[in-house]
């Protein structure tokens, strides 16, 4: 490996490694588009599992959507669920293996559209699972269709003239909805479009997994993320658009902590 700068030769040594890829991520190249937030969230979940040393006790559930191939990227035992049904799979696994760590990893179409009922009822039963929910306001895998979280006026392939609430309903804030259910213990909305937010999201995901030891109910982490190909923007533009538009409808921050609402809904 040729090191470009003389001064770096001293630094680039194994004992000086400050950050490297976690072993809980496989070597497979991610199937996500360049700059997609999925990749960052995959890393945060994988790092959390490595740091908590629970790789041999964690079972993940992949959705249908861009993250359908998540089992190629997490070096974990994983199951791929029918569209929207991940919370039901997770419910059964956690009840049958109470000492294991179980998480679902889902997109907005999977969790808030077809899987809305499974999401609500798993949360209402207070299952001791962790739900990682990527909200990029669009169906990415199938080519950019309108999702429940598509913003008012937002153009997608199935709202070509912008989402008109009178015809297509309003952006669904499912996270606020489930925060009101007594079965949820920790509910938060994070983002990964800036390093500072990535660090906060990592803490939230760590908390969501640690909570599983408490048997106090669902830990639900929504991550507002970009969809460069769906939004038809470069990654840098998409993150800027996200900040100026998505976060208005989907404000960041904790919504429920240790079973108590910390925000006016």
């Amino acid at each position: 490996m040729d090191v470009k700068f003389e001064s770096w030769k001293e630094i680039i040594k194994d004992e000086n490694i400050a950050f490297k890829k976690t072993k809980v991520l496989t070597d497979n190249i991610l199937s996500y588009c360049p700059g997609c937030g999925h990749g960052v969230v995959h890393r945060l979940v994988a790092e959390t599992i490595e740091e908590m040393e629970i790789q041999d006790q964690t079972i993940g559930i992949a959705p249908v959507g861009c993250a359908v191939l998540a089992y190629d990227f997490f070096d974990l035992d994983m199951q791929q669920a029918a569209h929207g049904r991940a919370p039901a799979l997770a419910t059964a696994i956690k009840r049958l293996y109470p000492e294991k760590f179980v998480f679902t990893y889902q997109g907005d179409g999977d969790l808030a559209a077809i899987g809305g009922n499974e999401t609500i009822h798993a949360c209402n039963r207070g299952e001791n699972i962790t739900i990682i929910f990527i909200n990029n306001g669009i169906y990415g895998m199938t080519g950019g269709q309108m999702a429940p979280t598509t913003l008012e006026g937002m153009v997608t392939s199935t709202s070509p003239y912008g989402r008109d609430p009178k015809l297509m309903g309003y952006p669904l804030r499912i996270t606020e909805l489930i925060a009101m259910l007594p079965g949820t213990y920790y509910v938060t909305r994070q983002a990964v479009y800036k390093p500072a937010y990535v660090r906060k999201a990592k803490k939230a995901i760590r908390k969501a997994f640690e909570n599983q030891k408490l048997n106090k109910g669902v830990s639900f982490v929504e991550i507002v993320s970009n969809c460069n190909s769906g939004w038809k923007m470069t990654p840098v533009e998409a993150n800027k658009w996200l900040e100026e538009n998505m976060l208005k409808t989907f404000p960041l921050g904790d919504i429920k902590v240790d079973g108590e609402l910390v925000k006016e809904l």
């Binding site: 079972i59 559930i61 199951q79 669920a81 029918a82 049904r85 039901a88 799979l89 997770a90 419910t91 059964a92 696994i93 009840r95 049958l96 293996y97 009922n117 499974e118 609500i120 009822h121």
Partner: peptide, 26 residues
Amino acid sequence: MVVLQAESELAAVNMLYGGGAAGKRV
């Protein structure tokens, strides 16, 4: 033995998927 009333048959049968794929008799 775990017994659970699901929110729909859709959820119930997918609980089977999760449990069966984890090696349990469901």
